[in-house]
Amino acid sequence: MTPPLLEIETLHTSFSTEAGIARAVDGVSFQLHAGETLGVVGESGCGKSVTALSILRLVRPPGRIEAGSAIRFEGTNLLALAERDMQHVRGNRIAMVFQEPMTALNPVFTVGDQIAEVARIHAGASRRSAAAKAVEMLALVGIPDPAQRATEYPHQLSGGMRQRVVIAMALVMNPALIIADEPTTALDVTIQAQILELLADLTRRLGTSVLLITHDLGVVAENCSRVIVMYAGEVVEESTTVELFAHAHHPYTEGLLGAMPRVGRGAERLATIPGTVPAPTAWPVGCRFRERCAFAWDRCAKDHPPLYQLGSGHQSRCHLAEEPNRRAHPHTPLAAASGVASA
């Protein structure tokens, strides 16, 4: 088997804050293979974005990646690279698409010039061929009238159009991996459909791998072959998407699936997960999901669950893997029983 394109091993990223050390990413490991679109889901504050920023080494003080972490990409440990070499990786091999496209665009240059600049730096194109390349890329990402659009400034474009421009910029360098952090969260659903279709089409045609971070399980279902569920700085479940939707194991994953309204399900009452994600400065001992969990028992308060292997490619950080009978006896979670809902 070919080695994975990206391999993250016990990534620890923390921030020193007034409230103490925030262990935002606390021992995350996963692999992403060439040509694959891997989903990462979880509520806000679970560490998804910090994981993405860590891969690109864009975590700024007071944040730091702890010793003992490893991020292997195309066989190289990125954490051991000199900053110069890391810049080369950022500019050529891994591209990033953020939720808010304006963060990646310069408001005072035309979008054509910005794409051309990337082409000049990364592909060594001449000025004229870079300008032509910019128009070609705008056409590739489905922007109508690309020659005209190339002469416009970011503020003259709609949110969906700007996100296409960012994707065009990312593609100029022909990266092996695109990290997309909530790329459609700020967009309307019809525009989201256009952008996701665009990404899927590009991965099909160019073989680009995508790490797709989202809080929307529907987006995962339609776009990702495998998925990682993050909770409280950790991976709590990993599996193929089909398996996850059919046989979610971790109570947190079950909770996310149950809370999601689905078109076609009518007015049935939504399941909820009581409580909220705990603070990263003080992760609970034992299972971090325990207070919100309807199955928690005394072992969950003491032992931090490891990622149990459930079957090929399916892992879950829940002691139910060893004591499945306990699923038959759900109870009111602590977070709900402590008087009032606390969302």
């Binding site: 525009i191 459909a193 256009q194 529907g218 279902a221 339609e222 939707f245 689905r262």
Partner: peptide, 24 residues
């Protein structure tokens, strides 16, 4: 119809068709 078709279906077994609206 287009709006409904754009809602992601949380059902990985089903490959949905989609009405992709052009432009904004």
């Amino acid at each position: 119809q287009a709006l409904l078709s754009a809602v992601p279906a949380p059902d990985p077994g089903v490959k949905r068709e989609r009405i992709l609206l052009a432009g904004d």
